[in-house]
Simulated assay, not measured.
Amino acid sequence: MRHIHTGARSRSSSHRAHSRIPSRTSGPAHSRIRSRAHGRLRLWTAAAAVITATVLVPQPALAGPPQVRADAANPYERGPDPTEESITAERGPFAVQKVDVPAGSGQGFNRGTITYPTDTSEGTFGAVAVSPGFVSPEAFISWLGPRLASQGFVVITIDTNTPFDFPDARADQLLAALDYLTTKSAVKDRIDPQRLAVMGHSMGGGASLRASAKRPQIQAAVPLAPWHTTSAWDQNKVPTMIIGAESDFIAPVAMHAEPFYENLKSAPEKAYLEMKGADHMAPALANVTTAKYGIAWLKRFVDDDTRYDQFLCPPPKPSPAIGEYRDTCPNG
Protein backbone atom coordinates (compact mmCIF):
# COMPACT_ATOMS: atom_id res chain seq x y z
CA MET A 1 0.00 0.00 0.00
CA ARG A 2 1.47 3.33 -1.01
CA HIS A 3 1.21 6.33 1.24
CA ILE A 4 -1.24 9.13 0.46
CA HIS A 5 -0.52 12.50 2.02
CA THR A 6 -3.68 13.87 3.63
CA GLY A 7 -2.60 17.29 4.88
CA ALA A 8 -4.10 20.55 3.54
CA ARG A 9 -1.87 22.38 1.05
CA SER A 10 -0.60 25.94 1.16
CA ARG A 11 -2.01 28.40 -1.38
CA SER A 12 0.75 30.97 -0.97
CA SER A 13 2.72 29.84 -4.03
CA SER A 14 1.73 29.75 -7.68
CA HIS A 15 1.70 25.96 -7.63
CA ARG A 16 0.92 23.67 -4.72
CA ALA A 17 2.24 20.30 -3.66
CA HIS A 18 -0.10 17.37 -4.25
CA SER A 19 -0.62 13.97 -2.69
CA ARG A 20 0.66 10.89 -4.49
CA ILE A 21 -1.84 8.48 -5.97
CA PRO A 22 -1.13 4.96 -7.40
CA SER A 23 -2.35 3.15 -10.69
CA ARG A 24 -2.97 0.29 -13.17
CA THR A 25 -6.14 -1.69 -13.99
CA SER A 26 -8.18 -3.12 -16.91
CA GLY A 27 -11.73 -4.37 -17.66
CA PRO A 28 -14.26 -5.66 -20.28
CA ALA A 29 -16.35 -3.61 -22.74
CA HIS A 30 -19.35 -1.49 -21.92
CA SER A 31 -21.87 -2.05 -24.72
CA ARG A 32 -24.24 0.72 -23.76
CA ILE A 33 -21.53 3.41 -24.00
CA ARG A 34 -20.37 2.00 -27.33
CA SER A 35 -23.81 1.89 -28.90
CA ARG A 36 -24.62 5.45 -27.90
CA ALA A 37 -21.18 6.69 -28.95
CA HIS A 38 -21.25 5.08 -32.42
CA GLY A 39 -24.53 6.78 -33.30
CA ARG A 40 -23.28 10.18 -32.22
CA LEU A 41 -19.91 9.65 -33.93
CA ARG A 42 -21.46 9.25 -37.38
CA LEU A 43 -23.24 12.58 -36.93
CA TRP A 44 -20.09 14.25 -35.57
CA THR A 45 -17.94 13.26 -38.52
CA ALA A 46 -20.60 14.71 -40.81
CA ALA A 47 -20.20 18.00 -38.87
CA ALA A 48 -23.63 17.77 -37.25
CA ALA A 49 -24.78 16.55 -33.84
CA VAL A 50 -28.13 15.73 -32.35
CA ILE A 51 -28.21 17.66 -29.11
CA THR A 52 -30.29 16.94 -26.06
CA ALA A 53 -30.88 20.13 -24.11
CA THR A 54 -30.21 20.11 -20.39
CA VAL A 55 -33.22 21.15 -18.33
CA LEU A 56 -32.53 23.34 -15.33
CA VAL A 57 -34.65 25.21 -12.85
CA PRO A 58 -35.20 28.87 -13.84
CA GLN A 59 -32.68 31.31 -12.44
CA PRO A 60 -33.63 32.93 -9.12
CA ALA A 61 -32.39 36.16 -7.68
CA LEU A 62 -28.84 35.66 -6.44
CA ALA A 63 -28.41 35.32 -2.70
CA GLY A 64 -26.03 37.39 -0.61
CA PRO A 65 -22.27 36.80 -0.44
CA PRO A 66 -21.14 33.32 0.60
CA GLN A 67 -20.36 32.64 4.21
CA VAL A 68 -16.80 31.70 5.15
CA ARG A 69 -16.55 28.08 6.18
CA ALA A 70 -14.41 27.57 9.27
CA ASP A 71 -15.66 24.27 10.66
CA ALA A 72 -13.61 21.85 8.53
CA ALA A 73 -9.99 20.77 8.86
CA ASN A 74 -9.76 21.51 5.14
CA PRO A 75 -11.65 24.78 4.54
CA TYR A 76 -12.12 23.94 0.84
CA GLU A 77 -14.19 20.80 1.35
CA ARG A 78 -17.71 21.19 0.01
CA GLY A 79 -20.62 18.84 0.58
CA PRO A 80 -21.06 15.71 2.70
CA ASP A 81 -18.67 12.77 2.81
CA PRO A 82 -18.71 11.18 -0.66
CA THR A 83 -19.87 7.64 -1.40
CA GLU A 84 -19.98 5.52 -4.54
CA GLU A 85 -23.67 6.36 -4.79
CA SER A 86 -23.15 10.11 -4.42
CA ILE A 87 -20.30 10.44 -6.92
CA THR A 88 -22.07 8.37 -9.59
CA ALA A 89 -25.49 10.02 -9.15
CA GLU A 90 -26.84 12.22 -11.93
CA ARG A 91 -27.06 15.04 -9.39
CA GLY A 92 -24.93 15.70 -6.33
CA PRO A 93 -25.92 17.26 -3.00
CA PHE A 94 -26.13 20.88 -4.21
CA ALA A 95 -29.17 22.40 -5.91
CA VAL A 96 -28.07 24.38 -8.96
CA GLN A 97 -29.18 27.26 -11.15
CA LYS A 98 -27.87 28.77 -14.37
CA VAL A 99 -26.87 32.12 -15.83
CA ASP A 100 -26.64 32.60 -19.59
CA VAL A 101 -23.65 34.48 -21.00
CA PRO A 102 -24.87 36.08 -24.25
CA ALA A 103 -22.80 36.39 -27.40
CA GLY A 104 -21.28 39.72 -28.38
CA SER A 105 -20.25 40.81 -24.89
CA GLY A 106 -16.53 41.00 -25.73
CA GLN A 107 -15.66 38.33 -23.17
CA GLY A 108 -13.14 36.46 -25.38
CA PHE A 109 -15.36 33.49 -26.25
CA ASN A 110 -18.62 33.27 -28.16
CA ARG A 111 -21.23 32.59 -25.49
CA GLY A 112 -21.80 30.20 -22.61
CA THR A 113 -23.82 28.90 -19.71
CA ILE A 114 -22.81 29.22 -16.07
CA THR A 115 -24.19 26.60 -13.70
CA TYR A 116 -23.65 27.20 -10.00
CA PRO A 117 -24.68 25.87 -6.59
CA THR A 118 -27.41 27.94 -4.95
CA ASP A 119 -26.15 27.25 -1.41
CA THR A 120 -23.77 29.90 -0.04
CA SER A 121 -23.48 28.53 3.50
CA GLU A 122 -20.21 26.63 2.91
CA GLY A 123 -18.23 29.49 1.38
CA THR A 124 -16.89 30.02 -2.12
CA PHE A 125 -16.45 27.29 -4.73
CA GLY A 126 -13.81 26.27 -7.22
CA ALA A 127 -14.66 26.89 -10.88
CA VAL A 128 -14.32 24.86 -14.07
CA ALA A 129 -14.38 26.00 -17.72
CA VAL A 130 -15.37 23.41 -20.36
CA SER A 131 -14.89 23.54 -24.15
CA PRO A 132 -16.58 21.35 -26.77
CA GLY A 133 -14.69 19.80 -29.67
CA PHE A 134 -14.32 20.62 -33.35
CA VAL A 135 -17.65 21.59 -35.01
CA SER A 136 -19.49 20.74 -31.77
CA PRO A 137 -21.68 23.33 -30.00
CA GLU A 138 -21.72 24.09 -26.29
CA ALA A 139 -24.90 22.03 -25.89
CA PHE A 140 -22.90 18.90 -26.68
CA ILE A 141 -21.00 19.14 -23.36
CA SER A 142 -23.71 21.03 -21.45
CA TRP A 143 -24.50 17.98 -19.28
CA LEU A 144 -21.23 18.61 -17.44
CA GLY A 145 -22.61 21.93 -16.13
CA PRO A 146 -25.23 20.56 -13.72
CA ARG A 147 -23.32 17.32 -13.15
CA LEU A 148 -20.24 19.11 -11.81
CA ALA A 149 -22.02 22.09 -10.25
CA SER A 150 -24.25 19.84 -8.16
CA GLN A 151 -21.08 18.39 -6.63
CA GLY A 152 -19.87 21.83 -5.54
CA PHE A 153 -18.30 23.77 -8.44
CA VAL A 154 -19.19 26.81 -10.52
CA VAL A 155 -19.07 25.62 -14.13
CA ILE A 156 -19.06 27.48 -17.43
CA THR A 157 -19.63 25.53 -20.63
CA ILE A 158 -18.84 27.61 -23.69
CA ASP A 159 -19.50 27.96 -27.39
CA THR A 160 -16.23 28.79 -29.13
CA ASN A 161 -15.85 31.81 -31.38
CA THR A 162 -16.22 29.55 -34.41
CA PRO A 163 -16.93 25.81 -34.48
CA PHE A 164 -13.72 25.38 -36.48
CA ASP A 165 -11.34 26.89 -33.90
CA PHE A 166 -8.24 24.79 -33.32
CA PRO A 167 -7.00 23.81 -29.82
CA ASP A 168 -4.77 26.80 -29.13
CA ALA A 169 -7.58 29.24 -29.94
CA ARG A 170 -9.89 27.22 -27.71
CA ALA A 171 -7.27 27.36 -24.95
CA ASP A 172 -7.34 31.16 -25.01
CA GLN A 173 -11.13 31.01 -24.83
CA LEU A 174 -11.05 28.65 -21.83
CA LEU A 175 -8.76 31.10 -20.02
CA ALA A 176 -11.02 33.99 -21.03
CA ALA A 177 -13.99 32.06 -19.63
CA LEU A 178 -12.21 31.60 -16.29
CA ASP A 179 -11.35 35.31 -16.23
CA TYR A 180 -14.94 36.21 -17.01
CA LEU A 181 -16.21 33.93 -14.24
CA THR A 182 -13.94 35.42 -11.60
CA THR A 183 -14.07 39.11 -12.55
CA LYS A 184 -17.27 39.94 -14.45
CA SER A 185 -19.90 37.24 -14.02
CA ALA A 186 -23.02 37.54 -11.90
CA VAL A 187 -21.65 34.76 -9.66
CA LYS A 188 -18.08 36.00 -9.27
CA ASP A 189 -18.53 36.42 -5.51
CA ARG A 190 -19.26 32.70 -5.22
CA ILE A 191 -15.90 31.71 -6.74
CA ASP A 192 -12.46 31.31 -5.18
CA PRO A 193 -10.22 32.67 -7.99
CA GLN A 194 -7.31 30.57 -6.71
CA ARG A 195 -9.18 27.29 -7.33
CA LEU A 196 -9.75 26.94 -11.07
CA ALA A 197 -9.75 24.08 -13.57
CA VAL A 198 -10.20 23.39 -17.28
CA MET A 199 -11.87 20.56 -19.14
CA GLY A 200 -12.77 19.83 -22.74
CA HIS A 201 -13.45 17.24 -25.42
CA SER A 202 -11.37 16.48 -28.53
CA MET A 203 -9.87 19.81 -29.66
CA GLY A 204 -11.34 21.17 -26.43
CA GLY A 205 -9.30 18.51 -24.62
CA GLY A 206 -6.18 19.65 -26.44
CA ALA A 207 -7.19 23.17 -25.45
CA SER A 208 -7.28 22.22 -21.78
CA LEU A 209 -3.69 20.96 -22.06
CA ARG A 210 -2.58 24.19 -23.77
CA ALA A 211 -4.47 26.35 -21.26
CA SER A 212 -2.72 24.50 -18.42
CA ALA A 213 0.67 25.07 -20.04
CA LYS A 214 -0.07 28.78 -20.50
CA ARG A 215 -1.40 29.25 -16.97
CA PRO A 216 0.29 26.87 -14.52
CA GLN A 217 -1.66 28.35 -11.60
CA ILE A 218 -4.65 26.28 -12.77
CA GLN A 219 -5.29 23.55 -10.20
CA ALA A 220 -6.53 20.70 -12.42
CA ALA A 221 -7.20 19.68 -16.03
CA VAL A 222 -9.39 16.89 -17.40
CA PRO A 223 -8.92 16.45 -21.18
CA LEU A 224 -11.49 14.09 -22.76
CA ALA A 225 -10.32 12.21 -25.87
CA PRO A 226 -7.88 15.08 -26.45
CA TRP A 227 -6.67 16.05 -29.94
CA HIS A 228 -3.68 18.28 -30.62
CA THR A 229 -0.93 18.54 -33.21
CA THR A 230 1.81 18.41 -30.55
CA SER A 231 2.67 15.87 -27.87
CA ALA A 232 5.21 18.15 -26.17
CA TRP A 233 3.59 18.70 -22.77
CA ASP A 234 6.72 18.16 -20.68
CA GLN A 235 6.52 21.70 -19.23
CA ASN A 236 2.89 21.36 -18.16
CA LYS A 237 2.79 21.63 -14.34
CA VAL A 238 -0.92 21.12 -13.69
CA PRO A 239 -2.35 17.88 -12.20
CA THR A 240 -3.98 16.28 -15.24
CA MET A 241 -6.33 13.34 -15.77
CA ILE A 242 -6.66 12.30 -19.42
CA ILE A 243 -9.69 10.19 -20.35
CA GLY A 244 -9.17 8.41 -23.65
CA ALA A 245 -11.20 5.91 -25.68
CA GLU A 246 -9.81 2.55 -26.78
CA SER A 247 -11.43 2.54 -30.25
CA ASP A 248 -11.04 6.24 -31.02
CA PHE A 249 -10.07 6.68 -34.70
CA ILE A 250 -10.44 10.50 -34.76
CA ALA A 251 -7.89 11.03 -31.97
CA PRO A 252 -6.34 7.54 -31.66
CA VAL A 253 -4.99 7.06 -28.16
CA ALA A 254 -1.65 5.81 -29.51
CA MET A 255 -1.16 9.15 -31.29
CA HIS A 256 -2.82 11.53 -28.83
CA ALA A 257 -3.99 10.59 -25.32
CA GLU A 258 -1.20 8.13 -24.48
CA PRO A 259 1.78 10.22 -25.64
CA PHE A 260 0.18 13.29 -24.09
CA TYR A 261 0.05 11.45 -20.77
CA GLU A 262 3.60 10.10 -21.05
CA ASN A 263 4.96 13.57 -21.85
CA LEU A 264 3.40 15.23 -18.81
CA LYS A 265 6.79 14.90 -17.14
CA SER A 266 6.48 18.04 -14.99
CA ALA A 267 2.93 17.46 -13.81
CA PRO A 268 2.99 16.81 -10.04
CA GLU A 269 0.26 14.21 -10.51
CA LYS A 270 -1.28 12.67 -13.61
CA ALA A 271 -3.64 9.86 -14.55
CA TYR A 272 -4.72 8.14 -17.75
CA LEU A 273 -8.06 6.37 -17.97
CA GLU A 274 -8.94 4.51 -21.17
CA MET A 275 -12.61 3.70 -21.73
CA LYS A 276 -12.92 0.08 -22.84
CA GLY A 277 -14.13 -0.45 -26.41
CA ALA A 278 -15.27 3.17 -26.66
CA ASP A 279 -14.77 5.57 -29.55
CA HIS A 280 -14.15 9.26 -29.84
CA MET A 281 -17.47 10.59 -28.65
CA ALA A 282 -17.88 8.34 -25.61
CA PRO A 283 -15.94 10.42 -23.05
CA ALA A 284 -18.02 13.51 -23.91
CA LEU A 285 -21.42 11.84 -23.76
CA ALA A 286 -23.27 11.82 -20.44
CA ASN A 287 -21.78 8.79 -18.68
CA VAL A 288 -20.81 7.62 -15.22
CA THR A 289 -17.12 7.00 -15.99
CA THR A 290 -16.29 10.53 -17.13
CA ALA A 291 -18.40 12.03 -14.35
CA LYS A 292 -17.09 9.87 -11.50
CA TYR A 293 -13.39 10.18 -12.21
CA GLY A 294 -13.61 13.77 -13.43
CA ILE A 295 -15.38 14.77 -10.22
CA ALA A 296 -12.89 12.85 -8.07
CA TRP A 297 -9.93 14.53 -9.82
CA LEU A 298 -11.42 18.02 -9.56
CA LYS A 299 -12.37 17.52 -5.92
CA ARG A 300 -8.93 16.21 -5.06
CA PHE A 301 -6.89 18.92 -6.74
CA VAL A 302 -9.18 21.96 -6.88
CA ASP A 303 -10.64 21.47 -3.39
CA ASP A 304 -7.68 19.62 -1.77
CA ASP A 305 -10.36 17.16 -0.69
CA THR A 306 -8.64 13.95 0.41
CA ARG A 307 -12.04 12.33 1.00
CA TYR A 308 -11.97 11.60 -2.74
CA ASP A 309 -8.70 9.65 -2.59
CA GLN A 310 -10.83 6.52 -2.17
CA PHE A 311 -11.92 6.75 -5.83
CA LEU A 312 -8.37 7.18 -7.14
CA CYS A 313 -6.29 4.99 -4.82
CA PRO A 314 -6.31 2.03 -4.95
CA PRO A 315 -6.76 2.53 -8.71
CA PRO A 316 -10.03 1.56 -10.39
CA LYS A 317 -10.57 -2.20 -10.60
CA PRO A 318 -11.31 -4.00 -13.89
CA SER A 319 -14.80 -3.10 -15.06
CA PRO A 320 -16.93 -3.13 -18.20
CA ALA A 321 -16.11 0.57 -18.67
CA ILE A 322 -12.36 0.80 -18.06
CA GLY A 323 -9.79 -0.89 -20.28
CA GLU A 324 -6.65 0.66 -18.80
CA TYR A 325 -5.64 3.01 -16.01
CA ARG A 326 -2.23 4.53 -15.29
CA ASP A 327 -1.07 7.18 -12.87
CA THR A 328 1.94 8.46 -10.94
CA CYS A 329 3.28 7.75 -7.50
CA PRO A 330 6.81 9.20 -7.48
CA ASN A 331 7.35 8.75 -3.74
CA GLY A 332 6.12 5.14 -3.79
Rank of each mutant, 00 (worst) to 15 (best):
V154N: 13
A171H: 08
T157F: 05
I141D: 10
L175Y: 02
A149Q: 08
R147T: 15
F134A: 01
L148Y: 12
L174M: 09
F153T: 01
D159E: 15
A176M: 05
R170G: 02
P163C: 01
S142Q: 08
T160R: 12
P137R: 08
W143Q: 06
D168W: 08
L144W: 07
N161V: 15
A197E: 10
I156W: 08
D179R: 13
L178N: 14
L174C: 13
D159N: 15
I191H: 04
Q194N: 14
W143T: 03
S142G: 09
F140I: 04
A149T: 03
P167K: 11
D172E: 11
V187G: 03
P193K: 11
A197T: 07
V198H: 14
S150Y: 07
D179T: 15
T182L: 03
L196Y: 02
L181Y: 15
E138V: 04
T182N: 13
P163F: 04
I141K: 07
S185F: 00
L148M: 11
D159Y: 06
K184V: 04
D189C: 09
V187K: 02
P137V: 05
Q173N: 06
A176G: 03
K188F: 08
I191D: 08
F166Q: 06
S136M: 15
W143N: 00
G145R: 01
S142Y: 02
A139S: 13
V187A: 14
L181C: 07
D192F: 06
A197M: 11
V198N: 15
K184C: 02
S150K: 06
A149D: 04
I141P: 03
D179P: 07
K188L: 15
V187L: 03
Y180V: 09
W143S: 06
D168F: 13
